[in-house]
Structures are given as structure tokens and as C-alpha cells.
């Protein structure tokens, strides 16, 4: 099963993760793991295996950090792919209901229309 084929998708914002492991424990399909790498705070951050996310959102609610986890529940239906100037790669993009014009990269979570 490839990334594109998964129903859901989870993005871990590495620098906002404190490595508590609650998302890993909570994840029903067990697609999250504690990275061997350290983030700049010195935590082993949580990471997504890259496939198998069902988009259930359990990890999002288990996570105590407001911005550490983003879950795309219907990744399979998201088709808008753009060039992200931050990642220098093409990624799926989304927008918030409060600001529909601003497209955000699903990989780095930064607006692509910026710098």
C-alpha cells in the first residue's frame, strides 16, 4: 500500500513533538513510531511510517501539543498538488475554511504562496 493509496494521512511537526508517545500508543493501525533521530529540543519525535493511516484522528486527540499532529482524514480524495517553495517538492495542498485562498503544503504545513 503506497502513501497515495492510504485513506488518511498524518503529518508530524517534528519540532513541536515532545516524544511523549501517546499518539503511538493510541494509533489503531499502529502506523506511528518513535524516531531514532532527535529533534532540536532533544526529543525522539514521533514519526509516520508513511502508509497505512486510516484518517481516524485518534492520534490528533491523543497528542497534547496543539500543532504537533495534523491528520488528513480523506487523503485519498485530496488531489490538488502544487510545488512547495519550502520543501522544493510537489506536495498535496489544503486550505483552512477561515482563509480559503491560502494554500498550505501538507508536508511542511507552511503556506505555499509565501516566500
Amino acid at each position: 500500500m503506497s502513501e497515495a493509496a492510504s485513506r488518511g494521512h498524518v503529518v508530524i511537526n517534528t519540532e513541536e513533538c515532545k516524544g511523549c508517545g501517546l499518539c503511538i500508543e493510541a494509533c489503531p493501525p499502529k502506523v506511528l513510531y518513535l524516531s531514532k533521530k532527535f529533534n532540536t529540543h532533544g526529543y525522539h519525535n514521533s514519526a509516520y511510517k508513511g502508509e497505512g493511516c486510516t484518517g481516524c484522528g485518534v492520534c490528533f486527540y491523543a497528542c497534547p501539543e496543539p500543532g504537533a499532529i495534523t491528520v488528513f482524514k480523506r487523503w485519498d480524495l485530496m488531489t490538488d498538488i502544487r510545488m512547495c517553495p519550502h520543501c522544493r517538492e510537489k506536495h498535496k495542498v489544503y486550505s483552512k475554511s477561515t482563509n480559503p485562498d491560502e494554500l498550505i503544503c501538507t508536508q511542511c504545513l507552511k503556506p505555499i504562496n509565501e516566500g
Binding site: E15, E16, K18, G19, C20, G21, L22, H41, Y43, G57, F60, Y61, P64, E65, P66, G67, A68, I69, T70, V71, F72, K73, Y94, K96, T98, L109
Partner: peptide
């Protein structure tokens, strides 16, 4: 999409120090 709520500041400017992205709470 389950994401950081708009009710939170994007960057925690009121938090002193270098880290303005995470909360002051302990892991877990």
C-alpha cells in the same frame, strides 16, 4: 482535516525564550 486550531496563536509570541512553537507543558 484535524489541525492546530485557529483559536491558538500560530506562534506563541508571549512565551519568553527561543522556543515559541511548543507549549510549556511537560511531555504527556
Amino acid at each position: 482535516i484535524l489541525r492546530k486550531s485557529n483559536v491558538f496563536y500560530d506562534v506563541y509570541e508571549r512565551r519568553p525564550g527561543a522556543d515559541k512553537l511548543t507549549t510549556t507543558y511537560c511531555p504527556g
